[in-house]
Amino acid sequence: MSQTLLLANALASETGILSKAYARVSEANSEYFNIFSILNMETNEVKTHSTFLAELLNPHGSHSMGETFLQLFLNKFEIKDFEAS
């Protein structure tokens, strides 16, 4: 077997190992979870996503959590100059 073919086989093997490792990490981190796929709304994801986030961040939203989600968001991104109420 030529040196080039041996190198190509080794590279293919290493690529397969890396691919499987990334898949395991993604699965462990729930990166495959997509609420829009579950709800069969992938084609409307951008509009739905924005509407959903706006509702969660609205202190007067139907979630009845008041400023909780907005405050968590502001804290996470270290936004200090915003009056949540």
Rank of each mutant, 00 (worst) to 15 (best):
A23I: 10
S62V: 15
M41Y: 01
M41G: 01
E67K: 09
L39R: 04
M41C: 05
H63F: 10
A23V: 07
I38F: 07
H60F: 09
S37W: 07
E31G: 13
S13W: 05
L5T: 08
P59E: 05
E45G: 02
T4Y: 05
A8G: 05
H63A: 11
T51Q: 10
A23H: 02
F69Q: 00
M41P: 00
A28P: 01
M65D: 04
H60M: 09
F36C: 02
L6D: 03
N34G: 12
L7G: 00
M41E: 06
N44W: 06
L6A: 05
P59N: 02
T43H: 15
Y32F: 15
E14P: 00
Y22T: 04
T4M: 14
S26C: 11
P59H: 01
H63R: 08
L11S: 13
G61Q: 00
E67D: 11
S62A: 15
Q71R: 11
I38M: 08
L18E: 03
T68L: 15
T68E: 09
F69T: 02
A21N: 09
Q71T: 07
P59A: 08
L6E: 05
E42H: 03
L57Q: 00
L7H: 11
E42C: 06
S26T: 10
K47C: 12
P59F: 03
E67S: 13
L11V: 14
L39A: 08
L6T: 03
E27I: 04
E42A: 05
S26P: 01
R24H: 07
S50Y: 13
N34V: 06
H63M: 07
M65R: 09
G61P: 01
A28H: 08
F33I: 13
E31K: 10
S19E: 02
A28Y: 07
N29L: 14
M41W: 00
A8R: 13
N40W: 01
L5M: 09
L57S: 01
T51S: 12
L56T: 00
S30C: 08
F69D: 00
S50V: 12
S37A: 09
V46C: 07
I17H: 03
M65A: 12
L72E: 02
E31R: 12
I35F: 15
T4N: 10
T4A: 14
Y32H: 15
L7M: 10
K20R: 07
Q71S: 01
S19A: 02
G61C: 02
A54E: 06
L70I: 06
L39Q: 06
G16R: 11
L39G: 03
L6I: 09
K47F: 14
N40V: 05
L18C: 12
E67A: 09
S13Q: 14
L57C: 00
L5F: 05
H60Y: 12
L56H: 03
S50F: 15
E31H: 10
Y32K: 12
S37P: 02
E55P: 01
N9G: 06
T48L: 14
T4V: 13
F36A: 04
A10P: 00
K20D: 03
S50I: 10
Y22A: 06
N58S: 08
T43V: 13
S26E: 15
L70N: 00
H49A: 10
S13G: 06
T51G: 03
L56Y: 03
Y32M: 10
A12W: 04
G66E: 06
